[in-house]
Nucleic acid binder design. Structure first.
Lengths: 196, 196
DNA sequence: GTCTATACGGCGATAGAC
DNA sequence: GTCTATCGCCGTATAGAC
């Protein structure tokens, strides 16, 4: 059985993701949890405290998901980068709650909470960059990736491709573009750009 | 002298961009315009009507900006694509109101208005794709761009790079990454991938 | 077209009983 | 820890004078 406090946070993440900070009322959160509005105050000081703790949990979950994905990949650097792209995009589509929550409040934080949010999110990013940089470096050493480019060039391009793909998939979500074909197109150009 | 109606829309775009739909009150809009709250109802039926007309104006402005940029570029396809990337990113940074407004409500529309918004925004996208496809096709005919890739492959990769760059620049906005150096890194990998 | 006055509901938040 | 009751405020929206 889940504790009320956790249920509040879970419900909050869903509602904040769907309707934003100002668009989500404490009444809606209480309804979703199955308690009355004032009971929320037994667990949190106020709405802002609920939100900020939800952001912490969302941030940790998002970065853990990516970290686990990176560490699960086996094989050549090329294969790792290729399947990571595929899995990350698939995860963002299926388990899209986390990434939606994460990006919503990273890019469009509620007025007044900008700094508190960015201080939570900036921590996790660098660790992931370091993991990927290792993979790229190994790919260069083993002769799969060109050494005419620096590790940072390849890393930034890869991250740009990841971000752009996520971006485009949201953008074209109501269009006819097939995800598998789309990824193949994007990857083939990237791979021509970085292969040895 | 600007008409009140236009001033309302201009103020609305700024406030909606900064604080979202639910986070922007009619009182705040009226204050910014310099009138009293009930006077808004002489020009618009309700808040939703103000917002939807703001979205129409924002969409048109955003796509016009991009279209004008594309048409202004001269020279080889490579040069056009390169400087378009640079200009688009610069415009998104300086004149970032339009792109922020556009993406905020494309990706995170207020509850209940999802379909109305997407029906406004989907129109303009295809025209821009067609303009870029022409440039890419010409680049292939003139031997600058590889013919081992299809026009669509190159187009999607280019758009992914644009989207990813915009994404990353917001993402790393508080970090130390220099924009010029960043664009050079991204472009060099893309160019290796698509050159003949 | 703009104003003052006001209606009405929902909001975040608190008091206090159980 | 949860509830009922309630507070004060601010939200959208309307009525009606000028």
């Amino acid at each position: 059985m889940m504790k009320t406090r956790e249920k509040i946070l879970e419900a909050s993440i869903e509602l904040f993701t769907a309707s934003g900070y100002e668009g989500t009322s404490l009444g809606a959160i209480a309804d979703k949890v199955g308690i009355k509005k004032p009971s929320l105050y037994a667990h949190f000081k106020n709405k802002e405290a609920i939100f900020l703790e939800a952001v912490e949990i969302g941030e940790a979950g998002y970065h853990d998901l990516l970290k686990r994905m990176i560490n699960e990949q086996k094989g050549t650097a090329a294969h790792i980068l290729r399947s990571l792209l595929e899995e990350a995009v698939a995860a963002f589509e299926e388990e899209h709650l986390l990434s939606q929550f994460y990006y919503r409040f990273l890019f469009f934080p509620p007025s007044g909470l900008e700094e508190k949010i960015s201080s939570i999110t900036t921590q996790g990013t660098r660790r992931l960059d370091a993991l990927l940089a290792d993979i790229i470096e190994r790919g260069q050493e083993e002769g799969e990736l060109t050494t005419e480019l620096t590790v940072e060039q390849i890393l930034r391009s890869y991250l740009c491709m990841l971000g752009g793909t996520d971006f485009d998939i949201r953008y074209y979500q109501h269009s006819s573009v097939d995800r598998k074909a789309y990824l193949e197109m994007i990857w083939s150009v990237f791979w021509r750009g970085v292969k040895a």
